[in-house]
Design a protein around this nucleic acid. Structure first.
Length: 423
RNA sequence: GGAGAGAUGGCCGAGUGGUCGAAGGCGCACGCCUGGAAAGUGUGUAUACCUCACAAGGGUAUCGAGGGUUCGAAUCCCUCUCUCUCCGCCA
């Protein structure tokens, strides 16, 4: 959520910068400012009215103490009018604030200056492209066939137990999952992140703070009896650790990492994109999150992106790094890098990580602030990224490293799997 | 799930209707003291919004959240949330 003071003072800038995201904000900004003017006028009258009744109450108190009953009673007659007035003003004020908030959350985050214009994923900028795309033999298999052949993943069994999109990992397949999680966590800890184990179900306030609510309501599983949401990413509980906090500047950067299962309804997805591990309702992911001071958040974004590319490199997978164009960026992001690995048998790029700087967009919603050394309060910047999402990594690992009679495990992973070959 | 106790500022902790945004202590910041430090000592130390130059000054709100009683509530009443203790259940 953008700050109201910013929208008020920089309305033109808000509108022009959101054009990069193909978002026409002119009407919305106009409405917001109109409500803001109304709100401030109401507050002015409300404050005046309350000041009067406070003053009156003080006088009445003094008169009682002096034993001047009748004079006090006389003053009392004046209070009911003020009370009615302040009550109705308060109602107006509440309605106005609510409306303003409702409108304000409809505004996407402003894209960073470096974000290229564009409509869709085809307009993303390739920043980096690395690794050799393997030349597979004629009878190379896609990962879902490999998973079956080597008895690593049972999709049908998962369907029986839960439904499509809930695979059952088995034997070396299950061990590979555990190995990847441990590997990613160890790498993050080595890079200075503190490991967390967050709750997998969160309340409404948390889902709202990171922006899943209200806009992505239908994408989360909702346990309605207890009004809890299954997390779509560990970003939600981890970032919410810092909700309603004022941090000292020496407590930053706060670097957190967490493994979690992630749950996504993926409403509306279908077709070959969802085949095998490409898109699931439940999957595993290690997330990295940073809370930083505003001045260096973009440097930190680069650093986080490098951490992610380092992981992919160690897994010996061909990848590319994209800077997302305005049209392909998420609502809350100011700048996003996507990492894609090449899945050789499917002959397509798969997104395995998305690293974003949200600047103050999340911190404003969740009132996350830093006190700078000179005593001033300012909103912190939040960033996060997948490091990494497992399923597509597994897909690429199986497909790219397949050989005639099995699958080779990259060296970096071998200490974690305990085997170097799946055959 | 049943019974009880509680929730006050960064922390501890006073405060049962009146000028309380809140005593006192700790912590923190700055100053004095000191050769330097400790001790001592003085001052300051919540947040949001409005007014306004994001200054000073002023106003309003906030003592878990929401509602109510009252001229006036941290203090009384109601609802909810959370924490703790005991019992039950349980990986």
């Amino acid at each position: 959520m953008l700050e109201i003071s910013f929208v008020r003072n920089e309305a033109a800038q808000v509108v022009s910068r959101l054009k990069i995201k193909n978002f026409d904000a002119s009407m919305l900004v106009e409405q917001i400012i109109a409500v803001d003017v109304r709100r401030r006028n109401i507050q002015k009258s409300l404050d005046e009215t309350l000041a009067q009744s406070n003053q009156l109450a003080r006088e009445i108190g003094t008169l009682y103490k002096q034993g001047k009953q009748s004079e006090a009673d006389l003053l009392k007659t004046r209070t009911s009018e003020l009370k009615n007035l302040s009550k109705s003003l308060q109602d107006d004020m509440d309605a106005c604030s609510l409306e303003q908030e409702k409108l304000l959350v409809l505004l996407p985050n402003l894209p960073h200056e470096g974000v290229p214009a564009g409509k869709s994923s085809t307009d993303n900028e390739v920043m980096l492209s690395e690794g050799k795309i393997p030349q597979l033999s004629e009878n190379a298999l896609p990962h879902w066939e490999l998973a079956k052949k080597y008895d690593l993943i049972d999709f049908e069994c998962g369907s029986k137990i839960s439904g499509a999109g809930f695979p059952v990992y088995k034997g070396k397949g299950a061990r590979l999952q555990r190995a990847l999680i441990a590997f990613f966590l160890d790498e993050a800890v080595a890079a200075g992140y503190t490991e967390y184990q967050p709750p997998l179900l969160v309340n409404e306030a948390s889902a709202y703070a990171t922006g899943q609510l209200p806009d992505k309501d239908g994408q989360m599983y909702h346990a309605t009896v207890d009004n809890l949401y299954l997390i779509p990413t560990a970003e939600v509980p981890i970032t919410n650790i810092f909700r309603d906090m004022i941090l000292r500047s020496d407590e930053l950067p706060a670097k957190c990492t967490a493994y979690s299962a992630c749950f996504r309804r993926e409403a509306g997805s279908y077709g070959k994109d969802v085949r095998g591990l490409n898109r699931l309702h439940q999957f595993d992911k290690v997330e990295i999150v940073q809370v930083v001071q505003p001045h260096n958040s973009y440097i930190v974004l680069e650093e986080m992106a490098m951490h992610v590319t380092g992981l992919i490199r160690k897994l010996e997978l061909p990848f590319r790094m994209l800077k997302l164009c305005g049209g392909d960026m998420s609502f809350a992001s100011a700048l996003t890098y996507d990492m894609e690995v090449y899945s050789a048998a499917q002959e397509r790029w798969l997104e395995v990580s998305s690293v974003s700087n949200f600047a103050t967009f999340q911190s404003n919603r969740m009132k996350l602030r830093v006190r700078t050394p000179d005593g001033k309060l300012t909103l912190a910047h939040t960033l996060n990224g997948s490091a990494l999402a497992l399923p597509r990594i597994v897909a690429a690992l199986l497909e790219n490293h397949q050989e005639k009679d099995g699958i080779r495990i990259p060296k970096a992973l071998q200490p974690y799997t305990g085997f170097d070959f799946i055959g």
